[in-house]
Structure formats: structure tokens, C-alpha cells
């Protein structure tokens, strides 16, 4: 009986190992290969406003946003649709990768100063 149980347990462990292996393989396959040609866009923040507040970018290309925070205070650059959340300290800049997008309007905002820091990415 005990042996039977032990057998069951080791069979269970094997299943765990293969499950862990499968998950790791899945994770590895998700890790990307070299990026495609990237489009770089610069946005600055001053007086808690984005400059420019509307940015036009081409569809289907990975983007790099360079967000320069010219204010002394920190800002959290956030976009729910773009899945971005990045704190940018005062007087510094951040580099943000954005996945290739389909045409549309994608809003972003500054979480620490939501009243004024509003912007939109227009993908065409």
C-alpha cells in the first residue's frame, strides 16, 4: 500500500516536472527574436502637459517612445490600452517600447497629474 502510494507520488512528481518543462518551453518560445525596424517618437512633458499631445505613427511597426520629463517633479507615464506603466523621475527621460499597433487612437496620460497630462497616439 505504502509502495503504491509512493508510486503514485513519484508519478505525480513526473507530471509536475513535465508541466514545469512545458511552461518553461512556452516561456522561451514567447521570448522574442531581434526586433524589426523601429520607429522612434519623442514626447516631452513640461508643466505637466505632453508636448506634442497628439502623435501620429505608422501602423504595424514597433515603436520606441522617448519621453522627456522636463518638469522637476516625477510623472508616471501610463496607458491602459498600450499596457504601459513607467515612472519618469523629474528632469530625466525614459525609453518605452510599444508593440506594433493596428490603426486607431491610443490614449496615454500622466498618472500623477491626470488633470493636465493627457495625450493620444494616432496610429494610421
Amino acid at each position: 500500500m505504502t509502495q503504491f502510494r509512493r508510486g503514485l507520488r513519484s508519478a505525480g512528481l513526473m507530471t509536475t516536472y513535465s508541466a514545469v518543462l512545458a511552461v518553461s518551453l512556452l516561456v522561451l518560445s514567447l521570448v522574442s527574436q531581434p526586433a524589426l525596424a523601429q520607429e522612434t517618437v519623442e514626447i516631452s512633458i513640461s508643466n505637466h502637459r505632453f508636448q506634442p499631445a497628439e502623435v501620429k505613427v505608422p501602423a504595424g511597426k514597433p515603436l520606441v517612445l522617448i519621453v522627456k520629463n522636463l518638469d522637476a517633479s516625477a510623472e508616471e507615464f501610463e496607458s491602459k490600452v498600450l499596457k504601459i506603466e513607467k515612472v519618469i523621475a523629474g528632469k530625466s527621460e525614459a525609453r518605452i517600447n510599444v508593440r506594433p499597433l493596428t490603426p486607431g487612437r491610443y490614449k496615454f496620460y500622466g498618472e500623477f497629474h491626470e488633470a493636465t497630462a493627457q495625450g493620444v497616439l494616432i496610429v494610421e
Binding site: 521570448v31 514597433p62 499596457k83 506603466e85
Partner: peptide
């Protein structure tokens, strides 16, 4: 999500559903 934002993982980046009209997570 952070790994995706870092550009390390780029697969499955599309949004699957949107319930922000019913219950926004904000």
C-alpha cells in the same frame, strides 16, 4: 506586462477582451 514593456517578450501582446466599460480597473 513589464517584460513586454521592456521589449523582452513581444508575443501575445494583443488585448483579448475589454471590460473597461463595465468595470474599469481604475
Amino acid at each position: 506586462t513589464y517584460l513586454a514593456q521592456a521589449g523582452i517578450v513581444t508575443a501575445l501582446g494583443d488585448i483579448v477582451w475589454d471590460t473597461s466599460a463595465i468595470l474599469p480597473d481604475s
